[in-house]
Simulated scan of single mutants.
Amino acid sequence: MRASKRRPVLRLRTNDTAAGVTEDTRADLLAGEEPLEIRVGGVSFAVTMRTPGNDFDLAIGFLLSEGMITSAGEIAEISYGPGVDADGSASYNIVDVRLAAGVPPPDPALARQLYTSSSCGVCGTSSIKAVTKQSGYAVALDSATVPLTTLLALPERLRQGQQLFRRTGGTHAAGLFAIDDQGDAELLYLREDVGRHNAVDKVTGAALRDAAIPLRHTVLQVSGRASFELVQKASMAGIPVLSAVSSPSALAVELAEEVGLTLAGFSRGDSVNIYSGSDRIRR
């Protein structure tokens, strides 16, 4: 798959010579970005820009986050659809999900709304209420607790696994960690993508395909900020703790409080801000 591509780049550097600038042309490795059309039963449902790779996980995670499916048993088959590049080879830019018998197909009118929300985001109190109703997992009842030292160690563990970022410097990452009774964290899934939302969908989609949903006693660590959409995706997968290296939005905090999810931000080195659900963090 085309997770990365080499492209020529002109590198300019200032120096103390008479010319003041040196330049050279070199090959640079860039993160791939291509459209992925998600179809349900052969009908187009949504289009998202993503880094190719783990496409089935992405499609399944997206359907989970939108409340279309809740378990692996609701999927009969998933495959790449038709589509070719300019040279006639398969593009792998269409994924078709066939739902199991008895699982209702998505409302055709919803497809346009989902495209808008994935492009522009969602906002407003009515959106929060809708998400709370859609989620089949009450994260507020999850008894998971996380030692502070364990939580603070997760960003570095995530960075250590970011192979594509190390090569390109241009991707987000999401890592799902299981917390045991001793408070130790085990990395279950790690995915990278140019879009932070896609990285999370790839993680939750992989978990759903492994029949691991709901993801009780887990922490979702992300490499960027915590938006409303990421809190929503965590809630839909039954994840009780979301930790980010940067800031959350005000609406993300509001939703986290609404559903009973622990939300951490600015997790860097020896400090972290807890915006909701602080009772889950062991001092």
Rank of each mutant, 00 (worst) to 15 (best):
R6F: 10
R7K: 15
L10A: 11
L10V: 15
G20H: 11
V21D: 07
A27L: 14
D28N: 04
D28P: 00
D28R: 11
L29V: 14
L29H: 05
L30T: 02
L30D: 05
L36H: 00
E37F: 03
E37Y: 06
I38D: 00
I38E: 00
G41M: 05
T48H: 05
M49N: 10
T51N: 05
D57H: 12
L58R: 11
L58F: 09
A59L: 04
A59R: 06
G61L: 09
F62P: 00
L63W: 02
S65I: 05
M68F: 06
I69E: 01
T70P: 01
E74Q: 15
A76V: 01
S79P: 00
Y80M: 03
Y80G: 06
D85H: 06
A86K: 14
A86R: 12
G88L: 09
A90M: 09
S91F: 02
N93T: 14
N93R: 15
V95Y: 00
D96Q: 09
V97A: 10
G102N: 07
G102A: 08
D107A: 09
P108N: 12
S117C: 03
S118R: 14
C123I: 07
G124N: 08
T125N: 05
A130V: 09
V131E: 08
T132P: 02
G136A: 13
A138Y: 01
D142F: 02
V146M: 09
L152H: 14
A153L: 04
L154I: 07
L154M: 15
P155Y: 02
E156C: 04
R157C: 02
L158G: 02
R159N: 13
R159Y: 06
G161S: 12
Q163L: 10
T168L: 14
G169D: 07
H172K: 08
A173Q: 06
F177Q: 03
A178Y: 04
I179M: 08
D184S: 15
L187P: 09
L187R: 12
L187I: 12
L188K: 14
Y189P: 02
E192L: 12
V194W: 04
G195T: 12
D201N: 13
V203Y: 12
T204H: 08
G205K: 05
A207C: 13
R209A: 08
A211P: 01
A212G: 03
A212I: 10
I213K: 06
L215D: 07
T218Y: 01
V219G: 13
Q221R: 03
V222Q: 12
R225I: 03
F228S: 00
L230Q: 14
M236E: 03
I239E: 01
P240S: 06
S243M: 08
P248R: 01
A252C: 09
V253R: 13
V253A: 15
L255N: 11
A256D: 02
G260C: 09
T262Q: 13
T262S: 11
T262P: 11
R268P: 07
R268T: 11
V272C: 15
V272R: 14
S278V: 13
D279G: 08
R282D: 10
R283C: 09
